[in-house]
């Protein structure tokens, strides 16, 4: 591979990020529609969660069946602090992120010292436990009725209470998150993660602290989920336990699988497309209510089918297809 081609492969992800930033900025100019922006806020929140999960599962090879619970921890923490205790918004978001990371550490420390699928089992149990907590800790979470009237984000006295403002805030954070994950992947920890995924014994033989790497990655990805949850709570204004259940955790994993392990662009695209799917009426005018209702009812089945299709026809997911196109663009195709 010539150095020119290698440089092209190197900068492509950053160009993609810049293109995404331009697209994000263009949306409010094209449509100031409230509903569209609200749906896109939800998409942006999912992009943040998926960026962290793509790092954890797609690169470090660790399965989490409990990421929705971390999103929930973030959402309830910030909502409670800001709404009930009148804490500043930034403090709420920061606490949400830190608490989710701490939850991730508590879970990962014992589970990741053991090899095998203990983390998957532990996160599965964690997800169920947290679901019960969200429902039953009524004084904080409002129980099954949910928690409403969560204040809008407010930074340095500036209240972000317009749909466009909230949209830009969430997507600004989402783009920064993607940049952060991209930089991690391109530095030593990212390389160590790929080594770990290829062979843990080989990674150990090279002096990589594999347990520490897995635990740190898990904590970071839990922190990003918590951050996303806080943004969601203040952006949408209402949260309830059903948003943070096990089915949502499974959907997150499905998005990463469809997007492609070992890729960041793939899962990001998958997050956008699959999150939009049940809300296609926001983008495609004239789509009948019945069609949308059917799509929302069959959401889980559509994800399931997409996952099966990926496993059969494109095991490397959307990311694998993107890479093939990129290599072809750089004049190099590997079978």
């Amino acid at each position: 591979m010539s150095s020119v081609k290698r440089i092209r492969l190197f900068i492509t992800p950053y160009l993609g990020l810049i293109a995404a930033a331009l697209a994000v900025a263009a949306v409010p100019l094209v449509t100031p529609d409230r509903y569209v922006l609200k749906v896109l806020v939800y998409v942006g929140v999912n992009v943040i969660v998926i960026a962290g999960l793509a790092l954890l599962f797609g690169h470090a090879g660790q399965i989490s069946m409990g990421h929705a619970a971390f999103v929930g921890i973030g959402a309830y923490t910030s909502a409670y602090l800001v709404k009930t205790l009148d804490a500043p918004w930034l403090v709420g978001v920061l606490a949400a992120t830190v608490l989710a990371a701490a939850g991730g550490l508590v879970l990962a420390l014992p589970a990741l010292r053991l090899r095998g699928h203990y983390l998957a089992m532990a996160t599965l149990g964690f997800s169920e436990i947290m679901y019960v907590v969200f429902r039953e800790a009524r004084a904080i979470t409002g129980g099954n009725d949910g928690l409403g009237g969560i204040p809008y984000p407010e930074v340095a006295g500036l209240k972000i209470d317009t749909p466009v403002g909230v949209y830009l805030l969430v997507w600004g954070v989402a783009l920064l998150t993607l940049l952060l994950v991209l930089n991690i992947l391109r530095s030593r920890p990212g390389r160590a993660m790929r080594a770990l995924q290829a062979t843990e014994n080989g990674a150990l033989a090279c002096g990589i602290d594999t347990v520490g790497l897995k635990i740190r990655t898990f904590a970071l990805s839990a922190a990003l989920a918590g951050l996303a949850g806080a943004l969601y709570a203040h952006g949408v204004g209402f949260i309830s336990p059903s948003t943070f259940g096990l089915d949502q955790s499974v959907i997150y994993m499905a998005i990463v699988v469809v997007g492609g392990a070992g890729s960041l662009a793939g899962p990001t695209l998958a997050a956008v497309v699959l999150t939009l799917l049940p809300y296609a009426d926001a983008l495609v005018p004239g789509l009948s209510k019945d069609t949308i209702a059917v799509m929302q009812d069959w959401e889980a089945d559509i994800y399931g089918l997409a996952m099966i299709a990926v496993v059969i026809f494109a095991p490397a997911g959307i990311g694998g297809l993107l890479k093939r196109i990129r290599l072809r663009g750089a004049g190099e195709v590997r079978s």
């Binding site: 030593r188 790929r194 080594a195 062979t199 014994n201 990674a203 090279c206 070992g262």
Partner: peptide
């Protein structure tokens, strides 16, 4: 340093990347 049985290379990574990871314990 151990050269493990069965080699335990990082298959999808390039030869250069494998060597770079070999130097993981050294400062960047």
């Amino acid at each position: 340093a151990l050269v493990p049985e069965g080699r335990m290379l990082f298959g999808p990574l390039t030869v250069d990347e494998n060597l770079a990871i070999g130097a993981h314990t050294r400062p960047a």
